[in-house]
Write a protein that binds this DNA or RNA. Structure first.
Lengths: 362, 362
DNA sequence: ATGAAAGCGCTAACAC
DNA sequence: GTGTTAGCGCTTTCAT
């Protein structure tokens, strides 16, 4: 039993006694040759076990890979657990599907700085989802001579972007709390930089955050509460590296342990807020009577929990990113798409108790 | 302003006055040249804007794409909605990540027969998830000279497979219902073939089903209930093309409208079962007193609903498929991995009411 | 440690 | 309608 070298377009042509062009045409331009000849070519191909033009060779020649690369902040498997990331992914998939493009998920380990996967990906462009401004993978992507679209963060000079107005969105939420009368608030936020800092984040860390979305939201909160006469330096901000309900719960615990007087917990994601909700329950704090809690994103579980939050259209974001990347027409000028958000007033926010109520009951 | 042709490895070599080999080595085999020279190469690359070796050209040369193709039954976007498919995806992603391989999702439209995306995908192998035996995309995959692993269905001679023992799994469930005393049952199943048939599926259609998993489950139910003295020809089986809770609800409605006497609804997926549950509620049928309902898969929502079902390890399936494909070692003999399943007895199954109870209440 | 030569398998001008 | 020519950009023996 011998190992036959696999047939190639050239060997097929030789076998048939025609040129390689003809064989190529048989596959790619049926109208360029007689149906009869084409039939013969395909027939012989079958006989020889020729599987059709090699996609990689074709890509090299045509300079088209037929796929879009997707780079996520986290391990791939994380993305499949986070509802927001998932909706984004679905949107991207929708766009790819519509254009008949493959979706190449780039394997990334945020702990290690191995960017070879970015260099190895045979794709026509990249979508980068929500990474820190100093992410080495992002740098690797930008070094490649293919179009790129960044979703959410960071904003990069000359690179297309789709996102929301984070400042305006959370300012609306802040305004709501301020109007309700909250002056002693605490904040639970996501990772601010690539290093793990599970604990309080002082102003300096807030200001130098590498995750622009978190940074923008904190800055907007700062502005809003400062304008309402609150000294931002006194507002506790607790940061968590991992994005999970457990993180939200522990962050809430950490904050409440040290600042028993806060009347509202502003969380920069619904996941964190749901965790905070759980912690509040554990402590027998009534929400919203004893404590208001707000989230961000508008995921299904948040809605179910009646969370006061900001809804952002994640699926549309994904689709917009995909469309932007695939839309070869008016590429050139850097483009930016800002999607609308909507304040959702749920049942987890209300007026704070007065000092009296605090001591003598509602 | 002029468009400079992008730098290539060759142009870089020319600029430096060294051979292409040396430049290549600078990237791929740092130990093959002096640190000093390497530094100079990389430095010049930066200056010229050379992004490093082109991944496609490299793939052509090395015959390695560094990515795994994934072919799903449904639209890509569907996969991000179905919890079972999602868990599978996550498992595959985990395996890919571990091996530093990209995950290339092949865009497929099950309605159209466009298999070009399969031919265009630059991948080192394919994972095919749960497709009908006559799926043209599957045929396209098998025609390509790369290793393939099929998950669930269909079983293909000589192709690696990972799955569960569908017959045994559902037989266990059937046995449970039989033991409880159910003799008048109905079945809700998923798509049996590529054509849309939203309605009753007669025995002939069951027998000629192209989705082997559904076929096997129906056959096992047939066997179990026949052995219990039930005439399978009289058991209504309702099929749905779309896999959604809405489908489950409408299928349940269709079945119950025509067969008011069934005491149990066996669904071949949790999604369908959750829909059936909703329809039962709508009809003010108490579950399980008036009607037992069972599912299949063991998704989180099913557990939450207390569904009696069969749990299968979807994440492990994905991981196993990935590992099998990536494990180049003992390829050769076709391999088959069968994962264990577990019967979950929830609160949606109980003894059927007796005829008396039916008329006079519990 | 570095270079020369030989393709990987294919497609796109352009000629006939 | 079919063939000729010329690479796409890279890696890899094998010499030196």
């Amino acid at each position: 039993m011998h190992v036959r070298r696999p047939a190639t377009l050239a060997s097929l042509a030789a076998e048939l006694g025609v040129s390689r062009t003809t064989v190529s045409n048989a596959y790619n331009r049926p109208d360029q040759l007689s149906p009869e000849l084409r039939r013969r070519v395909l027939e012989t191909a079958r006989r020889l076990g020729y599987p059709g033009p090699d996609p990689v060779a074709r890509s090299l020649r045509t300079r088209k890979a037929g796929a879009v690369g997707l780079l996520l902040t986290e391990n791939l498997s994380y993305a499949f657990r986070d509802p927001a990331a998932l909706a984004f992914l679905e949107g991207v998939a929708l766009a790819c599907e519509g254009a008949g493009q493959g979706l190449h998920l780039v394997p990334v380990n945020p702990e290690r700085e191995d960017i070879t996967a970015v260099h190895r990906a045979g794709v026509d462009g990249f979508i980068v989802y929500s990474v820190p401004d100093d992410d080495p993978h992002l740098a690797a992507v930008l070094s490649r001579p293919v179009p790129t679209v960044v979703c959410d963060q960071p904003r990069v000079e000359g690179v297309d972007r789709v996102g929301i107005d984070d400042r305006a969105a959370i300012a609306q939420l802040a305004q709501r709390l301020i109007t309700l009368g909250h002056r002693k608030v605490g904040v639970l936020c996501m990772r601010l930089a690539r290093d793990r800092n599970d604990g309080f984040a002082a102003i300096d860390r807030q200001r130098t955050a590498h995750f622009h979305v978190q940074k923008a939201r904190l800055a907007a909160l700062n502005e809003a509460f400062s304008a309402a006469g609150v000294d931002w330096a006194g507002v506790p901000v607790v940061e968590r590296f991992d994005h999970s309900q457990a993180s939200g719960a522990s962050a809430a615990a950490q904050l409440l342990d040290k600042h028993r007087d806060v009347t509202a917990l502003i969380c920069t994601s619904d996941i964190l807020a749901l965790g905070a909700l759980a912690e509040a329950k554990r402590r027998a704090l009534r929400v919203p009577q004893d404590l208001s809690i707000t989230g961000f994103d508008g995921i299904a579980d948040a809605e179910r929990a009646g969370l006061t939050t900001v809804r952002q259209p994640m699926l549309d974001k994904g689709r917009a990113a995909g469309t932007l990347l695939l839309d070869t027409v008016d590429r050139g000028r850097p483009r930016e798409i800002t999607l609308p958000t909507e304040l959702i007033v749920g049942s987890t926010s209300a007026q704070p108790r007065t000092a009296e109520e605090r001591w003598f009951g509602p």
